[in-house]
Amino acid sequence: MKTIPPLLICPLLWLAATTAAAQSGRDYITVVGSSTVYPFTTTVAEQFGKTGKFKTPKVESTGTGGGIKLFCAGVGVGHPDIVDASRAITAGEIESCNKAGVREVIEVKIGYDGIVVAGSNKSPVMKLSRRDLFLALARQVPDPANPQKLIANPYKTWNQVNPELPAEKIEVLGPPPTSGTRDAFTELVMENGCTNFPVIKALQGSDEPNFKRVCDSLREDGAYIEAGENDNLIVQKLQASPKILGIFGYSFMEENLSVIHGSPIEGVVPTFDSIASGQYVVSRPLFIYVKGAHMDVIPGMRQFLAEYVSQRSMGEEGYLADKGLIPMPAAEVTAVRASLQSKLEKK
């Protein structure tokens, strides 16, 4: 009689009390989105939290698509304020945003990221082109005997793809389809590589869905190995089996130069300078999207954005460059700042 009823009632009362108190307000910024942009936004968040009068923003790594879904779910303290994106937001996503009442979405470009095809330092450098990579990794390629016909990828070794490459088995570790890095890789490498072949180029424009399918589909016969989202794992596997190549973001290569190197693509080695100057072709812009309606609701939004676009963070020698972000040229940084400024003042 003494123990059971209070035991039952206590948690319920306590739950009711905390529920009521929980959602009265939020005094920190919430960021969701791309795992590629995550290392950069977290760095800015930490610096912002240390120097300013505001709490450190909370940054979640949800992937670009998942992040935009959360971001576009609505306006109010229960929804994120900023989304990290490793690609530009699509028209469809803007539409779903608008439907949920999120009307003002401010785009801020933060810099560039390179995607590298890396190999172990124990094996020789492979000089690749986008055409080689397409032939090695696509699910369907033009039949060498009859170039008008597409067949399942028959190539087993690199020298079958291009006689200048070594006679090693084709084995490439890369990200799964859910990853933004994979999207960027297929867009920048595969879709360019496949236009080298007249039969596929003919599809472009005339049969766009089929063109996308042929160009974007990667092999599933073991030559392309999906290695999950953990890029550190790919680096470790490259160390263990030096004949394999790996596909991942430039920042992971930069941290591991003692064990791996980036293969030159179209004759250009991926370095900080070659990506920044645009010579290295496999690079993409990174963005953050900001919810205009939250600008004066969540404390510190303006100051956080100011920190993000400041010279000491995204400038050529800023701390984001130390973390592997490829900064924009000075003129572009000025343009980004000016456009952000004008959008903030309009409010």
């Binding site: 108190a21 977290t42 939290g49 909370k58 940054v59 953990n230």
Partner: peptide
């Protein structure tokens, strides 16, 4: 999530130990 401030209550944003292991294992 990336959370710098040590949580001080049940509704502060926070993470847990296995998640911290996961996040660090994924850092460059």
């Amino acid at each position: 999530a990336f959370i710098v401030d040590v949580p001080r209550g049940f509704t502060d944003p926070s993470t847990v130990l296995p998640v911290q292991v996961f996040l660090w294992a994924d850092s460059p």
